[in-house]
């Protein structure tokens, strides 16, 4: 699993404060720790920086590249800021996160990626928003995103399609559809484009204590579709353990066996079943209940773990 570290994000009050103070050490610490924890690229979400982009983007690239060698992912809507950052890159191939299928973005952002030899995350989102159905998301990739890359001779292996994770709390019907979208995208083009998602989005608006479980169960399910890249929290040890269990096929623990089973069911285009679960084991039941909400079989509620299992 190729993890793009998500922890430098303006939504965090600490990041916000460090940025206001131009605290280089804070960002260097975060960058080093994320890379040590396994991040193979670093997502930088600094917000639009409408007033100070000219200064902030290059400063951040210099700051981070002084201590790590990995790819930097510019997570911003500010094209001028991204370009200012791209000009400063001296190390690994950068990533632009992102373009959508909206005309204006799709016109400009891929050209920028081409000019600076960056990889480009392209969202399956058009001007009318994000479609629920898997097929419609795939269609946006096939009819808009990939054709635009071809048009400007942008290498498909650098076009990272992001079919979009939405939160189980409020956009539950999107969650199972993503499984089909990732599956299909891998067979929709030759060579298949890389695929990445923002995993933690699945638990946005979920009470903090329940987020990690939802993230790692969804991760196991999405790995079953063949997902090999995601933006995620590299400090989430339990998440990384699930990834390791699946990659190494480590069935030495009962929980590990269940995660493998969930992965294998999805891989075989099946749904996990209650038979796969040791119902006397509270941890396994929590995983099962989480599968049920992620497949939109049971309506999500903040207290879903306290409800008796269904199915």
């Amino acid at each position: 699993m190729y993890i793009i570290g998500e922890n430098i994000h303006i939504i965090s009050p600490k990041v916000k404060e460090a940025l206001a103070n131009k605290d280089a050490k804070y960002f260097q610490d975060s960058a080093v720790k994320q890379v040590e924890a396994g991040a193979q690229a670093l997502d930088l979400n600094l917000g639009p920086r409408k007033k100070d982009w000219e200064e902030v983007f290059p400063w951040m690239v210099e700051t981070v590249e002084a201590v790590v060698d990995v790819s930097i992912s510019f997570d911003s809507t500010n094209i001028l800021g991204i370009e200012a950052g791209l000009k400063k890159i001296t190390k690994a191939q950068p990533i632009i996160n992102s373009t959508s299928a909206e005309e204006e973005r799709l016109e400009k952002v891929p050209l920028l990626a081409k000019k600076y030899n960056a990889r480009l995350v392209a969202l399956t989102m058009g001007k009318s928003g994000i479609p629920v159905a898997a097929d419609e998301r795939v269609n946006i990739a096939l009819e808009k995103l990939i054709p635009r890359a071809m048009e400007i001779d942008f290498p498909i292996e650098d076009l990272i399609i992001d079919p979009l994770v939405l939160t189980v709390s409020g956009c539950q019907e999107f969650c199972p559809e993503l499984i089909g979208a990732i599956r299909t995208l891998q067979f929709a083009w030759d060579p298949p484009p890389p695929i990445s998602v923002g995993l933690s989005n699945v638990s946005n608006a979920v009470p903090r204590e329940n987020r990690p479980l939802i993230n790692r169960v969804y991760c196991a399910m999405l790995m079953g579709t063949g997902l090999k890249m995601m933006i995620a929290d590299p400090f989430d040890e339990e998440l990384k353990d699930v990834i390791r269990i699946i990659e190494e096929r480590d069935d030495s623990s009962a929980t590990g066996k269940l995660y493998l089973k969930i992965h294998d069911r999805i891989e075989a285009m099946e749904e996990p079943l209650i038979e796969d679960v040791d119902t006397s084991d509270a941890e396994q039941m929590a995983i099962w209940k989480t599968v049920q909400i992620l497949l939109n079989k049971v309506i999500y509620a903040d207290a879903y773990l306290e409800q008796e299992a269904v199915g």
Binding site: S169, G170, Q172, I299, A301, A303, E306, Q307
Partner: peptide
């Protein structure tokens, strides 16, 4: 809101 409807029922039965 389906999520909040269900959540409230859980809280009340709790």
């Amino acid at each position: 809101d389906v999520n909040l409807s269900k959540q409230l029922n859980i809280l009340i039965t709790d």
